[in-house]
Design a protein around this nucleic acid. Structure first.
Lengths: 93, 93
DNA sequence: AAAGCGGTTTCACTTTAGGGAAACTTTTGT
DNA sequence: ACAAAAGTTTCCCTAAAGTGAAACCGCTTT
Protein backbone atom coordinates (compact mmCIF):
# COMPACT_ATOMS: atom_id res chain seq x y z
CA UNK A 1 0.00 0.00 0.00
CA UNK A 2 1.30 3.42 -0.96
CA UNK A 3 1.39 6.46 1.23
CA UNK A 4 -1.38 8.07 -0.80
CA UNK A 5 -3.61 5.02 -0.63
CA UNK A 6 -3.08 4.78 3.08
CA UNK A 7 -3.89 8.42 3.68
CA UNK A 8 -7.02 8.31 1.58
CA UNK A 9 -8.26 5.14 3.20
CA UNK A 10 -7.54 6.00 6.79
CA UNK A 11 -7.62 9.76 7.08
CA UNK A 12 -9.90 10.92 4.26
CA UNK A 13 -10.32 14.66 3.92
CA UNK A 14 -9.20 15.87 7.32
CA UNK A 15 -5.48 16.47 6.79
CA UNK A 16 -3.86 17.95 9.87
CA UNK A 17 -0.38 19.34 10.17
CA UNK A 18 0.88 16.13 11.75
CA UNK A 19 -0.22 13.99 8.84
CA UNK A 20 1.43 16.36 6.39
CA UNK A 21 4.63 16.03 8.32
CA UNK A 22 4.43 12.28 7.94
CA UNK A 23 4.83 12.60 4.21
CA UNK A 24 8.32 13.95 4.73
CA UNK A 25 9.60 10.63 6.04
CA UNK A 26 8.03 7.63 4.41
CA UNK A 27 10.44 5.20 6.06
CA UNK A 28 9.44 6.32 9.52
CA UNK A 29 5.85 6.40 8.44
CA UNK A 30 6.01 2.71 7.67
CA UNK A 31 6.45 1.70 11.28
CA UNK A 32 3.19 3.37 12.25
CA UNK A 33 1.41 2.02 9.20
CA UNK A 34 2.67 -1.47 9.92
CA UNK A 35 1.27 -1.43 13.43
CA UNK A 36 -1.93 0.27 12.37
CA UNK A 37 -2.59 -2.25 9.63
CA UNK A 38 -1.84 -5.22 11.87
CA UNK A 39 -4.19 -3.90 14.51
CA UNK A 40 -7.00 -3.40 12.00
CA UNK A 41 -6.46 -6.90 10.63
CA UNK A 42 -6.90 -8.23 14.13
CA UNK A 43 -10.01 -6.07 14.55
CA UNK A 44 -8.72 -4.47 17.74
CA UNK A 45 -9.07 -0.96 19.13
CA UNK A 46 -6.05 0.93 20.38
CA UNK A 47 -7.34 0.41 23.92
CA UNK A 48 -7.69 -3.35 23.50
CA UNK A 49 -4.17 -3.56 22.12
CA UNK A 50 -2.85 -1.35 24.91
CA UNK A 51 -4.41 -3.60 27.56
CA UNK A 52 -2.84 -6.72 26.09
CA UNK A 53 0.56 -5.09 25.92
CA UNK A 54 0.20 -3.51 29.33
CA UNK A 55 0.28 0.13 28.26
CA UNK A 56 -2.19 2.88 27.39
CA UNK A 57 -4.08 3.82 24.26
CA UNK A 58 -2.31 7.18 24.20
CA UNK A 59 1.02 5.43 23.76
CA UNK A 60 -0.28 3.21 20.97
CA UNK A 61 -1.67 6.26 19.21
CA UNK A 62 1.69 8.01 19.38
CA UNK A 63 3.44 5.06 17.79
CA UNK A 64 0.88 4.67 15.00
CA UNK A 65 1.23 8.37 14.23
CA UNK A 66 5.03 8.38 14.50
CA UNK A 67 5.01 10.96 17.24
CA UNK A 68 7.50 8.73 19.01
CA UNK A 69 10.32 6.74 17.51
CA UNK A 70 10.20 3.17 18.66
CA UNK A 71 12.87 0.69 19.68
CA UNK A 72 13.04 -2.60 17.89
CA UNK A 73 12.46 -4.39 21.19
CA UNK A 74 9.39 -2.25 21.85
CA UNK A 75 7.82 -3.07 18.51
CA UNK A 76 8.62 -6.74 19.08
CA UNK A 77 6.96 -6.64 22.48
CA UNK A 78 3.80 -5.03 21.14
CA UNK A 79 3.51 -7.54 18.32
CA UNK A 80 4.13 -10.53 20.55
CA UNK A 81 1.90 -9.55 23.45
CA UNK A 82 -0.71 -7.73 21.42
CA UNK A 83 -1.13 -9.99 18.42
CA UNK A 84 0.66 -13.19 19.36
CA UNK A 85 2.80 -12.72 16.25
CA UNK A 86 6.38 -11.73 15.71
CA UNK A 87 8.44 -9.12 13.94
CA UNK A 88 10.58 -10.16 11.00
CA UNK A 89 13.72 -8.17 10.39
CA UNK A 90 16.03 -8.51 7.45
CA UNK A 91 18.66 -6.48 5.69
CA UNK A 92 18.37 -6.14 1.92
CA UNK A 93 21.82 -5.35 0.57
CA UNK B 1 21.88 -19.06 11.36
CA UNK B 2 21.02 -20.34 14.81
CA UNK B 3 22.23 -18.90 18.06
CA UNK B 4 24.45 -21.96 18.60
CA UNK B 5 25.99 -21.73 15.16
CA UNK B 6 26.64 -18.05 15.61
CA UNK B 7 28.30 -18.53 18.98
CA UNK B 8 30.52 -21.33 17.76
CA UNK B 9 31.53 -19.47 14.66
CA UNK B 10 32.14 -16.07 16.17
CA UNK B 11 33.06 -16.63 19.78
CA UNK B 12 34.46 -20.16 19.97
CA UNK B 13 35.57 -21.29 23.40
CA UNK B 14 35.89 -17.99 25.21
CA UNK B 15 32.46 -17.48 26.78
CA UNK B 16 32.36 -14.28 28.85
CA UNK B 17 29.54 -13.12 31.06
CA UNK B 18 28.25 -10.78 28.38
CA UNK B 19 27.96 -13.52 25.86
CA UNK B 20 26.13 -15.70 28.36
CA UNK B 21 23.69 -12.89 28.94
CA UNK B 22 23.02 -12.77 25.24
CA UNK B 23 21.63 -16.26 25.32
CA UNK B 24 18.85 -15.09 27.60
CA UNK B 25 17.31 -12.92 24.88
CA UNK B 26 17.61 -14.41 21.45
CA UNK B 27 15.34 -11.82 19.88
CA UNK B 28 17.54 -8.96 21.00
CA UNK B 29 20.56 -10.98 20.08
CA UNK B 30 19.32 -11.15 16.50
CA UNK B 31 19.67 -7.42 15.94
CA UNK B 32 23.37 -7.56 16.75
CA UNK B 33 23.85 -10.69 14.68
CA UNK B 34 22.04 -9.14 11.75
CA UNK B 35 24.29 -6.11 11.71
CA UNK B 36 27.41 -8.16 12.37
CA UNK B 37 26.67 -10.54 9.52
CA UNK B 38 25.83 -7.76 7.09
CA UNK B 39 29.05 -5.98 7.93
CA UNK B 40 31.13 -9.14 7.40
CA UNK B 41 29.39 -9.77 4.08
CA UNK B 42 30.43 -6.30 3.00
CA UNK B 43 33.96 -6.97 4.26
CA UNK B 44 34.01 -3.87 6.40
CA UNK B 45 35.56 -3.17 9.80
CA UNK B 46 33.55 -1.53 12.56
CA UNK B 47 35.57 1.62 12.02
CA UNK B 48 34.87 1.72 8.28
CA UNK B 49 31.18 1.27 8.94
CA UNK B 50 31.23 3.91 11.67
CA UNK B 51 32.85 6.43 9.33
CA UNK B 52 30.24 5.89 6.63
CA UNK B 53 27.41 6.26 9.12
CA UNK B 54 29.06 9.19 10.86
CA UNK B 55 29.58 7.62 14.25
CA UNK B 56 32.32 5.77 16.14
CA UNK B 57 33.47 2.19 16.22
CA UNK B 58 32.64 2.01 19.91
CA UNK B 59 28.99 2.65 19.13
CA UNK B 60 28.89 0.02 16.39
CA UNK B 61 30.46 -2.47 18.78
CA UNK B 62 27.79 -1.78 21.38
CA UNK B 63 25.02 -2.45 18.90
CA UNK B 64 26.57 -5.66 17.58
CA UNK B 65 26.96 -6.88 21.16
CA UNK B 66 23.50 -5.74 22.26
CA UNK B 67 24.88 -3.47 24.92
CA UNK B 68 22.57 -0.81 23.54
CA UNK B 69 19.03 -1.24 22.36
CA UNK B 70 18.54 0.33 19.00
CA UNK B 71 15.70 2.30 17.48
CA UNK B 72 14.24 1.17 14.19
CA UNK B 73 15.20 4.48 12.61
CA UNK B 74 18.78 4.09 13.83
CA UNK B 75 19.15 0.63 12.36
CA UNK B 76 17.65 1.92 9.10
CA UNK B 77 20.15 4.77 9.01
CA UNK B 78 23.11 2.46 9.61
CA UNK B 79 22.02 0.08 6.88
CA UNK B 80 21.32 2.83 4.37
CA UNK B 81 24.41 4.94 4.96
CA UNK B 82 26.74 2.08 5.82
CA UNK B 83 25.78 -0.54 3.29
CA UNK B 84 23.57 1.25 0.79
CA UNK B 85 20.88 -1.28 1.58
CA UNK B 86 17.62 -1.10 3.45
CA UNK B 87 15.87 -2.70 6.39
CA UNK B 88 12.86 -4.87 5.72
CA UNK B 89 10.23 -4.98 8.43
CA UNK B 90 7.21 -7.20 8.51
CA UNK B 91 4.77 -8.52 11.03
CA UNK B 92 4.09 -12.25 10.97
CA UNK B 93 0.67 -12.82 12.53
C1' DA C 1 -28.62 16.54 23.03
C1' DA C 2 -25.97 13.85 25.54
C1' DA C 3 -23.73 9.69 26.45
C1' DG C 4 -20.36 6.54 24.62
C1' DC C 5 -16.53 5.11 21.92
C1' DG C 6 -12.31 5.29 19.37
C1' DG C 7 -8.66 8.04 18.70
C1' DT C 8 -5.52 12.21 19.50
C1' DT C 9 -3.07 15.66 22.02
C1' DT C 10 -0.99 17.88 26.01
C1' DC C 11 1.55 17.96 30.24
C1' DA C 12 4.76 16.04 33.01
C1' DC C 13 8.18 12.81 34.69
C1' DT C 14 11.96 8.96 34.47
C1' DT C 15 14.88 6.08 32.02
C1' DT C 16 17.82 5.04 28.32
C1' DA C 17 19.41 5.43 23.48
C1' DG C 18 22.65 8.08 21.07
C1' DG C 19 26.93 9.53 21.11
C1' DG C 20 32.24 10.28 21.66
C1' DA C 21 36.98 9.82 23.85
C1' DA C 22 40.06 7.11 25.51
C1' DA C 23 41.86 3.12 27.67
C1' DC C 24 42.07 -1.55 27.19
C1' DT C 25 42.04 -6.32 25.04
C1' DT C 26 42.11 -9.48 21.39
C1' DT C 27 43.46 -10.84 16.85
C1' DT C 28 46.36 -10.69 12.91
C1' DG C 29 50.33 -10.00 10.05
C1' DT C 30 55.25 -9.96 9.50
C1' DA D 1 57.67 -11.85 19.59
C1' DC D 2 56.02 -7.53 18.48
C1' DA D 3 53.52 -4.01 16.33
C1' DA D 4 49.45 -2.74 14.20
C1' DA D 5 44.71 -3.28 13.47
C1' DA D 6 40.24 -4.57 15.05
C1' DG D 7 37.16 -4.86 18.56
C1' DT D 8 35.51 -4.07 23.46
C1' DT D 9 34.67 -1.63 27.61
C1' DT D 10 34.31 2.38 30.64
C1' DC D 11 33.06 7.02 31.74
C1' DC D 12 30.15 10.57 30.94
C1' DC D 13 26.69 13.73 29.00
C1' DT D 14 22.29 15.20 26.43
C1' DA D 15 18.27 14.51 23.95
C1' DA D 16 14.51 11.69 23.18
C1' DA D 17 11.90 7.30 24.07
C1' DG D 18 8.83 5.40 27.27
C1' DT D 19 5.08 6.15 29.88
C1' DG D 20 0.49 7.55 32.14
C1' DA D 21 -3.44 10.70 33.30
C1' DA D 22 -6.53 13.40 31.74
C1' DA D 23 -8.59 16.56 28.61
C1' DC D 24 -10.30 16.82 24.16
C1' DC D 25 -12.19 15.85 19.28
C1' DG D 26 -15.43 13.52 15.87
C1' DC D 27 -18.69 10.35 15.04
C1' DT D 28 -22.47 7.26 16.17
C1' DT D 29 -26.43 5.73 18.62
C1' DT D 30 -30.09 6.14 21.63
Amino acid sequence: MSLEEFKEKNYGKRGTKKRDELEAGYENFKVGVLLHQARLEKGMTQEQLADKVGTTKSYISKIENNIKEVRISTLQRIIELGFGGHLELSIRL
